[in-house]
Computed example of a mutant assay.
Amino acid sequence: MSEKIEVGVIGLGKFGLELAITLRKLGHSVTGIDSSEERVKAAKPYLAQVFEADGTDPQTLEQLSFQDFNYVVVSTGDSMEASILVVLNLQEIGVNKIWVKAISEAHKKVLSKMGVDFVVFPEHFAAKQLAHKLATPGMVEYLSMGQDILIKEREAADWAGKTLIDLNLTNNYQVQVIAIRKAGSDDLDFVPKANDPLDKSDVLIMIGQRENLLKLPD
């Protein structure tokens, strides 16, 4: 497992709570706060450290040692003003790494100008994921890397008996096979051997630009 980190999560709505729970499952330490008693109660079964507190109060953040965490994630619902105030307070008490959920493009722009380390716009990202999934058969995931980088699945089918060396997908299509999944299995063989013949039912997991993935024969 990677090195254990300590993360503070301010705002335990759907996004914040899901993030906190996932981090805990990955073995990391999470402290969550929210001003809503109901949300705090909902989080208690999943988080060892959860408090009903106001994230816009710098003294509260300091008392809960947010300045000592490796990362602090701000997910304060629909209030752009509250989010910005929380970020200012975190910067004031010396938090090193601040990640923030944006609620609009304007919010994202302001946060970037404030020097926030990472800004995520979940609705925007989810919309792109869905659009690419609808438009690209076999797409597994859209990666936001400044270009339309996708991960796509394809059964070996007519490639059966050939090796990755034979297919030469990197040079022919500028596409890279990053894993292979055998039929009936959920396990992935990452960085597969290039000289092993493919079975007809093998599923190739490939990464590349959308336009290149679409050039692959069906």
Rank of each mutant, 00 (worst) to 15 (best):
V72Y: 02
I207R: 04
E52L: 14
D68L: 10
A53H: 15
V191L: 15
G138F: 04
S29D: 12
Q147W: 08
H132E: 03
S35V: 12
I21K: 07
V74K: 00
A42Q: 13
V175E: 01
G8N: 09
V73S: 04
I207M: 11
L214C: 06
A20S: 15
I207H: 03
S79E: 03
E123H: 07
K101V: 07
Q63I: 14
E141V: 12
L167F: 04
S35I: 14
D196V: 12
V7G: 00
V119D: 08
L12I: 05
H28M: 03
N96G: 07
I178M: 02
F190G: 08
V95Q: 06
N89E: 10
K4Q: 14
A48K: 14
H28S: 09
S185F: 09
T136P: 02
G13Q: 05
K113F: 10
K215M: 07
I149R: 05
V9R: 03
G16T: 01
Q209P: 00
A48Q: 10
I33D: 02
V86F: 00
M206E: 00
A131Q: 12
A43F: 01
H107K: 15
M114P: 00
D57K: 15
S185N: 07
L19A: 11
D78H: 06
L214R: 04
G161M: 01
L23V: 03
L26K: 15
L12N: 05
I207F: 03
V120S: 07
G32D: 06
S112I: 12
E6M: 05
P58G: 08
N70M: 01
V110S: 10
N70R: 06
F51Y: 15
V100C: 08
I10G: 09
M1R: 04
P122C: 04
K25Q: 15
Q174F: 03
S36K: 11
K108F: 13
G77V: 01
F51L: 12
K41N: 07
D166Y: 00
Q91V: 06
S2F: 02
S65M: 10
E18L: 07
E123M: 10
Y142P: 05
A20L: 02
I180C: 02
S185D: 11
V177D: 00
A43R: 06
S144F: 14
V50R: 12
P58K: 15
Q67C: 01
S2V: 06
